[in-house]
Design a protein around this nucleic acid. Sequence first.
DNA 1: TTATATGCAAAGACTTTGCCGTTCA
DNA 2: TGAACGGCAAAGTCTTTGCATATAA
Lengths: 144, 144
Amino acid sequence: MTTNERTIRKKLGGAGQRVTSQRLLLLKLIQKQQGHLDADDLYRRARDLNPRLSLSTVYRTLRLFKDLGIIEELHFQPEHHHYEQRASREHHHLVCLRCGRIAEFESAHTKGLRQEIARRHGFTVTGSEINFTGYCADCRDKAT
Amino acid sequence: MTTNERTIRKKLGGAGQRVTSQRLLLLKLIQKQQGHLDADDLYRRARDLNPRLSLSTVYRTLRLFKDLGIIEELHFQPEHHHYEQRASREHHHLVCLRCGRIAEFESAHTKGLRQEIARRHGFTVTGSEINFTGYCADCRDKAT
DNA sequence: TTATATGCAAAGACTTTGCCGTTCA
DNA sequence: TGAACGGCAAAGTCTTTGCATATAA
């Protein structure tokens, strides 16, 4: 049993949730990806390993993982969601409008932002999503 | 003809788009709202004034206004979009998880963020969406 | 006049749900 | 064993599209 598997077993068990082969498989794929997946990506990859797995299970599991704080839901595109493993360090995303690549960034500025919000608005921040759209270095040069 | 109407006529005309009563009506409602509307809100309000107006027209018009830069599309909730008139000043949103209210904030920090992104990633930012979720001052006190 | 926009209904994309057999604890 | 889970198909929500009619320019 890997360390990851032990962690997930504890998380699920602690929440009164069962450890099933489907959940372990999906988690493994999410961790392996180390990027951003949507439900359909995950479904297709999971089917390669377990052809009987259903799309509903993917959706149900994503919701569960989200509720347990194992993954985060992202909204780069209006049409559907993306997911990524919850990161230890807060980071946000840069979405290239030309090639579609997603880069991550961390910044000390976001801490200042949160403090400002608390001070000026009396708002207690529990989560944030910061997406910048634009053109990555590669695409900017190519852009006509 | 109001100033707003003159402005929209120019914007539509300049883009080779026609000025229709539906478009004027929808724009007026968006401007009047001064907040955040979703497609269905807008549809219901518009129907009170023009019962024949269709939901497809609402969607088509929102897309048009978005493409023309008249409104901005926001993604507070994963299920559907919200729209607001494009603001003269950059601002972002605080979403209260308890009462659902949306507050706006402006901050000097976001400028620093953009510069940092350009410098460290060579990424040219053309747009941004920053949403913080949490609890507003009212709800924090009430929260159990 | 004529290309564009609208209304209506149908279809589409993504996600959720109900039900029943299966599985984990 | 029994409550929770997964598979399947059906339904739900939000949004887009096709086509005929109406309308702005």
